[in-house]
Design a binder for these strands. Structure first.
Lengths: 148, 148
DNA sequence: TGTTAAATTTGGGGTATATGCAAATTATTT
DNA sequence: AAATAATTTGCATATACCCCAAATTTAACA
């Protein structure tokens, strides 16, 4: 259990986490509070043992507080990181929705590639769209936009 | 050496190849004709042995004609697939360039995530932009747009 | 409270992607 | 033909996923 985190929001590139870890973080953010292994594994449709391993990884880098047999919860750093991830998803979804894709399509596409879009790109896209408060899949916060 | 290909352009989703294999195919397309292992490995900054392995993989699925110690060349199917890959890159680059990113940034971002954007999304984006003939990184062909 | 049932973790194993090094091989050049 | 350059093969590593079976822990309940 770490009380520090290898990521300080100021130096986030947005490219630190693998696609699956991004999914886990967004899920923990959506659920809020302590989330049980089974809950996660059934949401993500993976074996519980896979969840245990991934959550342990996230805990080892300080994004998650994990108590074995109890559950997992975002740390403060994890929550901030997850906020960025959700914003990124929503901004990209909003952007793509301007090109004739349906809502489901848009979300599906973005879910596939979002992990590879940098924070600085997101900042610029967000700025260029006038800092919209509602994205394709939910509200957008602007606490993490560099370019305001 | 296969004269058939597991991909028929009509059923292409755009998600068949890993990011690195996409790079190889786009490179072979740009270079044209028979390309030597060293040429590829120096362009992509990987060890020649890595290139040999990847090219062999591409040959095994019928996208590349490969003669050991001689070089690699796209098959007809490979050329068509690579055309799609280049178009996808150019369309996505053009799209992103509308959001305040510089040319280099745009190309860099797209290169990171393009492998995860489906052909059907590209078709729609392309259609929505009015089938532009020039993208962010080069010309765009429309032979592969479903929605014309 | 002890026993069972459910949830969870551990350990092992597997696939896919991607990489490099060293040694062996093939091609080219002289 | 011998030397050199290019290339391949075999081996090894690393990351990111994944699942299964066995062991463990927690929770329930009788």
């Amino acid at each position: 259990m770490l009380d520090y985190c290898m990521f300080s929001m100021k130096e986030i590139t947005g490219l630190e986490l693998s696609p699956k870890k991004v999914e886990y973080l967004k899920l923990l953010f959506r659920k809020g509070g302590v989330v049980r292994t089974t809950d996660i594994s059934s949401s993500l449709k993976v074996d519980p043992s896979t969840t245990t391993k991934t959550i342990s990884d996230l805990a080892s880098i300080g994004l998650v507080d994990y108590t074995p047999y109890r559950g997992a919860e975002l740390t403060e750093a994890g929550r901030k990181y997850a906020e960025f991830l959700v914003n990124r998803h929503n901004i990209l979804t909003l952007m793509l929705s301007h090109y004739g894709l349906s809502s489901e399509e848009t979300c599906e596409e973005v879910s596939r590639f979002e992990s590879f879009v940098s924070r600085s790109a997101i900042d610029k896209i967000c700025c260029s769209m006038g800092h919209p408060s509602v994205g394709g899949c939910g509200r957008i916060d602007h606490a993490f936009c560099d370019v305001s």
